[in-house]
Design a protein around this nucleic acid. Structure first.
Length: 287
DNA sequence: AAGAGGCCCTGATAGC
DNA sequence: TGCTATCAGGGCCTCT
């Protein structure tokens, strides 16, 4: 599901339910994710109270009252669902495998007083990792570039980073070491609004274009957040509500459709860049 | 040392 | 209907 806007939406819907609440119990149904969920995770977070929910790029971070953190990455298909408890006294796993739940790939159940939060991930590209201090969390995140809503995402940084890069700008936008939070959908959208050809090398991006990228990245991502994220394949917030930014797409998933720019008669085309679909208007993004 | 490509996984859909 | 191939909001690892 998850680029920055979708994770932000999950954060916003989750925080209303779980802030200042205690995780009574944890049931690990399937430890196999990108990295195995550690066996004693239950010991570490059961009976801990949640102080806040944070987000850094595509990471959701549960911050407990003490200096403890649970980092969640959603990979391609990870989701969180909030489900009401029918009977809060039942905690055996078979109970939670009721027919109403998408239980095939439910990896973890976080049990609260009146509801539970379920981490589900069919493709298992996501992961869940615990840190017992802010220092360790930050160490884990040390190689990530600035989140587009952080101060570090500025002209000076981009200019310096791009100066000798032979990699194309599309792949650069997807590189979390450069900027963290942008994924395959929003990379295409941002480059269209910036009028930049996705194959252009980083070192050839002009100062004018750097400013465009900064401005349009913030524009696209914040608009997507306002619209509840993009639901191209069942993305929902924790309460099951879908987003609507897919209706605003200018290029993504719009192969053979008309360019949305006024007076442009070009059709959007799909090209592959490093085996990933990229959508462009060849007229508006000539350079 | 930067960059390209393979690979990890399941599920939905298209085409035969 | 049922097979196979392709593709999907990501990113780590290996090789050059």
């Amino acid at each position: 599901m998850p680029e920055l806007p979708e994770v932000e939406i999950v954060k916003q819907s989750l925080i209303k339910s779980v802030q200042f609440k205690k995780i009574n119990n944890l049931i690990i149904n399937n430890r196999n994710l990108r990295f195995k969920i550690e066996k004693n995770l239950k010991k570490k977070i059961a009976n801990k109270r949640i102080k806040n929910i944070l987000r850094k790029s595509k990471y959701l971070i549960i911050n407990f009252e003490k200096d403890e953190y649970l980092l969640i990455h959603f990979g391609m298909s990870g989701t969180l669902h909030q489900v009401k408890n029918k009977n809060k006294f039942k905690t055996n796993l078979s109970f939670y495998h009721s027919k109403n739940l998408p239980n095939d790939h439910n990896h973890v159940y976080f049990l609260f007083d009146n509801f539970k939060i379920i981490y589900n991930d069919p493709r298992r590209f996501g992961f869940i990792k615990y840190f017992n201090s802010n220092d360790k969390l930050n160490f884990f995140l040390r190689n990530y570039g600035p989140d587009p809503f952080e101060n570090g995402f500025n002209f000076k940084y981009l200019k310096k980073y791009l100066i000798n890069k032979t990699k194309n700008i599309k792949n650069l936008l997807l590189d979390q070491k450069f900027i963290s939070g942008i994924g395959n959908i929003y990379a295409s959208e941002i480059l269209f609004y910036s009028k930049i050809n996705p194959l252009k090398k980083g070192k050839n991006i002009s100062q004018y274009e750097i400013n465009k990228i900064i401005k349009k990245t913030k524009f696209v991502l914040s608009k997507a957040i306002k619209k509840g994220g993009s639901s191209i394949r069942n993305f929902k917030n924790t309460k099951g509500k879908i987003g609507s930014y897919q209706e605003e797409f200018v290029v993504y998933n719009r192969e053979n459709k008309n360019c949305k720019r006024k007076n442009c008669k070009e059709k959007i085309v799909k090209i592959n860049i490093s085996k990933r679909s990229t959508f462009i208007c060849k007229y508006c993004q000539k350079k």
